[in-house]
Simulated assay, not measured.
Amino acid sequence: MTLAAGYRLVDGAPSTDDYVRLRRESGLSVKTAEQGSAAITGSWAFRHVVDASGGVVGMGRLVGDGAWYFLVADMATLPEHQGRGIGSVILDSLLEQIHAEVPAGAYVTLTADPPGRRLYESRGFVDVAPARTGMHLVTN
Rank of each mutant, 00 (worst) to 15 (best):
T2P: 01
T2S: 15
A4V: 11
A5R: 14
G6Q: 07
G6C: 00
Y7P: 09
R8K: 15
D11I: 12
D11M: 03
A13L: 08
S15R: 13
D18L: 01
V20F: 00
V20R: 07
R21M: 05
R23C: 04
R23S: 00
R24Q: 09
E25F: 08
E25I: 08
S26D: 10
G27K: 11
L28R: 12
S29I: 14
T32G: 00
T32V: 09
A33H: 15
E34Y: 05
I40F: 10
I40V: 14
G42D: 11
G42P: 02
A45L: 04
A45G: 07
R47G: 01
A52V: 14
A52E: 15
G55K: 12
V57N: 06
G58T: 15
G60R: 11
R61S: 00
V63L: 04
V63H: 06
A67H: 11
Y69M: 00
L71F: 12
V72N: 01
A73Y: 14
M75H: 14
T77M: 04
H81A: 09
H81F: 11
G83E: 13
G85N: 06
G85I: 05
G87V: 12
I90N: 05
L91R: 03
L94F: 11
L94T: 03
E96S: 03
E96K: 06
I98M: 02
V102I: 15
P103G: 00
A104I: 12
T111S: 07
A112M: 13
A112T: 14
L119E: 11
L119W: 12
Y120A: 07
E121A: 04
E121Q: 15
E121T: 05
R123P: 07
D127G: 05
V128E: 04
A129N: 06
P130S: 02
A131R: 11
A131N: 10
A131Q: 13
R132K: 12
G134A: 09
G134W: 13
H136D: 14
L137H: 09
N140R: 10
